[in-house]
């Protein structure tokens, strides 16, 4: 397999949740994820950011096949997931997930080691070996097995539980770990410990991470590339440095400028954008961001932008960056000149 083949390739991933018809609400679907395309290279960390309702968590659950997509496919190492080449069970051994809520993601009736050992047993490892692996992993995530293996989730702190969840995800020796807001519920000092742990484990086990978070500081710290989502669609995708230095999409830019300042003498003077994200039940026509965008023109409400490459690694879905679109503030020529 050539080095350029992505480890994980997501094509046209779409999830529409049907809505029960009710008075005053005829339209029948929530467009949670709409035609999302991206790929993840071996060994990288892809950060996915966006606000509530942007579809980042639904994307994670679709990737894990915990819910069935309306359309689209996931390709792992060139094999379509769920096909004869790559049955679901085998895919699940390769791709694992850590959830946000450390308490709800552990069975309260099982000891820590039983929770971790469950996965390997499903895949045919004997109970004895699975328990041994669980204890080894506990020490890898910084929990002394002698003290923690026999404990129950409610006897652990939030940070310790999240370490157990990480160990559980690693028990199947996966290649990819999806971290869905995995550190968001933790206190800052604990968050730092868990982030360090994630970095260590990534190196030790050659892992590839999909890091989903609303905390831009953390995403910036841990990700190699960042994908910004808005109302079920990808609006921008670039290397972390490029996107934090100069985000091209007006939404991505506004999102990044919304980070509170850490300098008391350089407080934010005015909100970058006003209003709340609209409801994904009836997303705006054309570009979904046009209702809140300061650069919106009439063309934006009628024409949906395509994800367009502006250089090798930077892609953006905005009409200002699309060729042959009559947007008065088109940036296409500016980019050409710069190139």
């Amino acid at each position: 397999m050539s080095a350029a083949t992505p480890l994980l390739d997501v094509r046209g991933l779409t999830k529409h949740f049907p809505l029960k018809a009710s008075p005053g609400n005829k339209s029948g679907v929530v467009r949670a994820v709409d035609d999302v395309n991206f790929s993840v290279m071996r060994g990288e960390t892809l950060g996915i950011v966006g606000e509530s309702g942007c579809g980042k968590s639904t994307t994670a659950r679709l990737l894990m096949h915990l819910i069935n997509p309306t359309a689209g496919e996931v390709i792992f190492e060139g094999k379509v997931v769920g096909s004869r080449d790559l049955p679901m069970k085998e895919f699940h051994r390769q791709v694992q997930m850590v959830f946000q809520d450390s308490y709800s993601s552990l069975n309260p009736r099982l000891t820590v080691e039983a929770s971790i050992a469950f996965g390997p047993q499903v895949h045919g490892v004997s109970e004895k070996d699975a328990v041994k692996r669980a204890r080894d992993l506990l020490s890898r995530v910084g929990l002394e097995p002698a003290r923690f293996a026999g404990r129950y989730p409610h006897e652990l702190s939030g940070g310790q539980r999240q370490r157990v969840n990480i160990a559980r995800a690693l028990a199947l020796e996966p290649r990819v770990v999806i971290l869905d807001e995995a550190v968001s519920a933790l206190d800052k000092s604990v968050e730092a410990q868990v982030l360090n742990l994630l970095l260590d484990l990534k190196q030790a086990f050659n892992l590839t991470y999909l890091f989903i978070s609303h905390d831009l500081n953390v995403v910036r710290y841990i990700s190699d590339r960042v994908m910004v989502m808005y109302l079920g669609q990808v609006v921008e995708m670039a290397s972390t440095d490029a996107i934090f230095a100069s985000a091209k999409h007006p939404y991505a830019d506004a999102l990044l400028s919304s980070m509170p300042s850490m300098d008391p003498d350089q407080r934010t003077e005015a909100p970058p954008i006003s209003g709340d994200p609209p409801n994904p039940i009836n997303p705006p026509s054309g570009c979904r961001f046009h209702t809140r965008c300061t650069f919106a023109e009439s063309v934006c409400s009628s024409r949906a932008p395509q994800l367009t490459s502006i250089d090798d690694t930077h892609r953006v879905a905005c009409l200002m960056y699309e060729a042959n679109v009559a947007h008065p503030r088109s940036r296409v020529n500016v980019l050409k000149v710069a190139a």
Binding site: S157, G159, D187, K188, S189, V190, E191, A192, Q193, L195, N196, L199, D215, N217, V218, R220, Y221, I222, S223, D224, T240, F244, M262
Partner: peptide
């Protein structure tokens, strides 16, 4: 001091370990 240092922030290089506070409250 430790709280301020343990935050992931912009000026930090990727992959550089965060300063942490050992133990728990």
């Amino acid at each position: 001091k430790a709280l301020l240092q343990s935050r992931a922030h912009g000026s930090l290089d990727r992959g550089q370990r965060l300063a942490t506070i050992p133990g728990a409250p």
